[in-house]
Design a protein around this nucleic acid. Structure first.
Length: 821
DNA sequence: GATTGGCGGGG
DNA sequence: GTGTACGCCAATC
């Protein structure tokens, strides 16, 4: 028997000789890939006996239970009596061990209908995930194993060891993973998406540390040292497999490769009877079945990095497009090569010298994918270590799943059963339940000087912790006479004696984050990247706890807990608003956790003192924070009502930076001239405090539009087609533009962005539409751009200063505006 | 205005 | 594989 240390990377299980055997792939401390095999873990679930039913009778019955055909039998192997808590109530239960994971779904329905059975619990916890939780193993953390080597292991590309014991006793983790990125180019003469039934893969690129390669199967003149020519598509696929297994990276990374690249390679492989058996266990990668979306390769983990970016990273990105170009542009400051991808098929057919540029383009896509993966990997790794599930799974988890799997891992420590997921009827009920949300104080439209902003630090998480909000502390018997949740509709309270499971777990996450932030201050640059990713993961996780409580599919769902959180939120924000008014500040605006106060004749110091007074009375972890002082703030009206618009305001800070919220400056289907005018007007108003100048600027834009001095590029409106043009009932401008494109022989497909200019040819908008390349400079409908683009973008801003749209277009002013002229 | 349906990413 | 996305926008009633 020898001791071995390794870092787990991937976990799977195989059925060997009628037993489920867990296989953990990873790297040793010497950086060798290995597989640890553990055959001592058994699948199980729980049965709760009916009240009053005899648990021992039921145990005897279950002990000998079996079903299924011979050879495919589902059998109970043993039973054990346990007591655990389910949503605050202690339950006597029977833990039922079975022969195979598939026996659990195979028998749980029948068992749940047996006499004396109240319910069945934990029947849908995936075997390998359960293994990690029960064995307290966290992927990527240094693991000690007592092993015996296995001679001549079957179906393994790496040495295998049988585990006698497996434990983690260290915080040391594997933070540098070997990445190989890949990308394919396909042949598609019809000029839209390729069909794997018809169109071959013509290029495939791979990019790793000190490795770059483009494989293609037509020879052309290309003076590129990374090109490798092979004889055909089948050879291309074989070569791809060879390289992946030669390099044997930890991660095989693509961009939308769950949805495009890997399924495409698999389907083209089928045509030549080539299996994509690149995993360390030789299992062939298969297309997702049913509703599945992921493609798994064992040991060499397939990571579609788009998943992670979309789910976790996108929150902090400005772009709303998840295209590789947009994401790489923002995260890396680097973009895709600029080639006309529509011309690839023709270049391929004619063996054009352009193919060299397509090869470069192909490699560049893999490089961007590699760099993106490297960039977000610290975040993914920290999340893996926090949640305790594999890279493969964590990469594809939504926030609610991340919270849920974190809680599941902690449940056993607190002796908690994992509640069942809601079924159809319950889901329907939950979906119809609405929780009253946050309080919004509507602003009075206007330009204000001297504005201080305060907000509650992590409002909802700190409420949950400070008020001990948790399913099992809700309306306890012991605290009936204590403080109630500030709600008119219902009497709710939370235990003040016993700490709740949900709130305790959340509290630990918050304190851990504070500790990490402290350590960060004393760390060097390299460490700080990981620590920053860690505190970021802890933050996103803690911010998701409230949402999880009210998420309809959550195991730990509680509408009463969720509504208590928002009720306390409204309560505390009102406390700030009322207190500020009493002190003589004008409250301008408030939304959920923030308050905008007008200083009036008071100073910033007065405001800070006020903040201190509020903080002195807040419970537990709750804290009101000073966000900043702004020399000017602008609030605009919504429609005709004169009421201030919510979530739409603009500020200028003391350094002259604009903070613009809710204005349409970034919306897609607006012309550049309208966007730019809006931004400029906000800057003039906030920076120069000169509405007249803003007004005149707009009037000048209007004049330039009238005099046809605006260039076509500033007038081009981009809009996305959402379906095929024939299926549109009404011909909107973008549909008319699409039709013109089609007439010119351009393939039209749903999802494409059409760009058009509105001219004065005809009556209806659809007749006025032209493609940018069809119009000469000055050929456009001034009235349309003035009345439908520019004016709506600035109207609400200028209205604050009593300018109306008529004033601008006519160049006149109303008499009451004398003060500005 | 509320509800429903389909899309995103990829060549 | 002890299962299987989800949040948003646009179209439509």
């Amino acid at each position: 028997m020898t001791m071995l240390q390794f870092y787990p990377i991937d976990v799977t299980y195989k059925v060997l000789a009628g037993r489920a055997v867990v296989h953990i792939y990873g790297r040793t401390v010497e950086n060798k890939q290995i597989c640890i095999i553990d055959d001592a873990f058994e699948p199980y679930f729980y049965v709760i006996p009916e009240n009053g039913a005899s648990a021992s009778d039921l145990m005897t019955l279950l002990e000998n239970y079996k079903n299924g055909e011979e050879g495919k039998e589902n059998k109970v192997t043993s039973v054990k009596q346990v007591v655990k808590t389910l949503n605050g109530r202690d339950e006597d239960a029977i833990q039922v061990f079975v022969n195979l994971p598939r026996a659990v779904p195979g028998m749980r329905h029948e068992i749940s209908k047996m006499e004396g059975v109240k319910s069945v619990l934990e029947y849908d916890i995936f075997f390998t995930r359960r293994y990690l939780v029960d064995r307290k193993i966290v992927p990527l953390i240094l693991t000690d194993v007592e092993t015996e080597p296995i001679e001549n292991p079957k179906r393994s590309r790496v040495p295998c060891f049988k585990a006698k014991s497996i434990t983690q006793n260290s915080n040391d983790s594997l933070d540098e993973l070997n990445i190989l990125a890949f990308d394919i180019e396909t042949y598609n003469p019809e000029g839209r998406l390729s069909l794997p039934e018809k169109h071959p893969i013509i290029m495939l690129s791979l990019y790793g540390k000190n490795f770059k390669k483009v494989i293609t199967w037509k020879r052309f003149n290309a003076d590129l040292d990374y090109i490798e020519f092979v004889d055909g598509e089948a050879e291309l696929i074989e070569r791809f497999k060879e390289i992946v297994n030669e390099i044997s990276p930890d991660l095989l990374v693509g961009y939308y490769s769950d949805g495009f690249d890997l399924p495409y390679i698999i389907k083209r492989g089928e045509k030549y009877k080539i299996k994509i058996d690149i995993g360390l266990d030789y299992d062939k990668a298969v297309l997702p079945r049913g509703n599945a979306k992921s493609i798994d390769t064992t040991g060499i983990v397939h990571v579609d990095i788009l998943n992670f970016i979309k789910r976790v990273i996108s929150r902090r990105l400005k772009t709303d497009s998840m295209k590789l170009n947009a994401v790489a542009g923002e995260l890396l400051g680097e973009v895709k090569d600029d080639v006309d991808i529509e011309g690839l098929a023709e270049a391929w057919d004619t063996l054009s010298p352009e193919l060299k540029n397509y090869a470069k383009y192909n490699l560049q896509d893999s490089k961007l994918t590699y760099d993106l993966c490297e960039k977000v990997l610290p975040n993914l790794i920290e999340l893996v270590k926090l949640i305790g599930q594999t890279i493969k799974d964590t990469n594809r988890m939504s926030y609610s799943q991340l919270v849920e799997w974190y809680i599941i891992r902690r449940a056993d420590e607190f002796n908690q059963f994992i509640p069942n997921r809601p079924h159809h009827k319950e889901l329907e009920k939950r979906m119809s339940e609405r929780v009253k949300g946050a309080f919004v104080y509507e602003p009075k439209p206007g330009l204000y000087e001297g504005v201080v902003v305060f907000d509650f630090r992590s409002l909802y998480p700190t409420i949950i912790v400070s008020h001990n909000i948790s399913i099992e502390t809700l309306n306890c018997d012991c605290c009936k006479e204590k403080e109630k949740v500030p709600l008119d509709t219902k009497q709710l309270w939370f235990c003040s004696k016993k700490e709740g499971f949900f709130s305790t777990v959340l509290k630990e996450i918050i304190t851990r984050r504070m500790r990490v932030k402290e350590i960060m201050k004393k760390s060097d640059e390299k460490k700080r990247v990981f620590l920053d990713a860690r505190q970021e993961s802890l933050k996103t996780l803690s911010n998701s706890f409230y949402g999880y409580l009210g998420f309809f599919a959550a195991r730990w769902y509680s509408k009463d807990c969720a509504r208590s959180v928002t009720a306390y939120g409204r309560h505390y924000i009102h406390r700030v608003i009322d207190g500020a008014k009493k002190k003589g500040f004008d409250v301008l605006y408030s939304d959920t956790d923030s308050v905008f106060m007008h200083l009036n004749d008071k100073t910033e110091k007065d405001a800070l003192n006020f903040c201190d007074e509020i903080n002195a009375k807040l419970p537990g972890m709750m804290e009101l924070e000073y966000e900043g002082t702004y020399p000017r703030a602008l609030f605009v009206a919504v429609k005709e009502s004169g009421v201030g618009a919510k979530k739409k305001y603009a500020l200028i800070d003391q350094k002259g930076q604009l903070v613009i919220k809710g204005f349409e400056t970034v919306r897609r289907n607006v012309s550049p001239i309208a966007k730019a005018t809006q931004e400029k007007v906000l800057r003039i108003v906030l920076q120069d405090n000169n509405p007249k100048k803003a007004f005149e600027f707009v009037r000048d834009v209007v004049t330039r539009l009238k005099e046809k001095r605006v260039g076509t590029e500033d007038l081009t409106i981009p809009t996305r087609l959402t379906r095929s043009i024939d299926s549109y009932e009404s011909i909107g401008p973008h549909v008319a533009a699409a039709k013109r494109l089609k007439e010119r022989g351009v393939e039209i497909y749903p999802g494409m962005i059409v760009r058009y200019v509105v001219t004065s040819n005809g009556q209806k908008i659809r007749d006025k539409v032209r493609l940018p390349e069809e119009v000469r400079k000055g050929e456009y409908d001034s009235d349309y751009y003035i009345n439908n683009q520019v004016l709506p973008a600035v109207e609400k801003i200028l209205e604050v200063f009593n300018y109306s749209s008529d004033d601008i277009s006519k160049g006149k002013k109303q008499s009451k505006l004398g003060q500005y002229f």
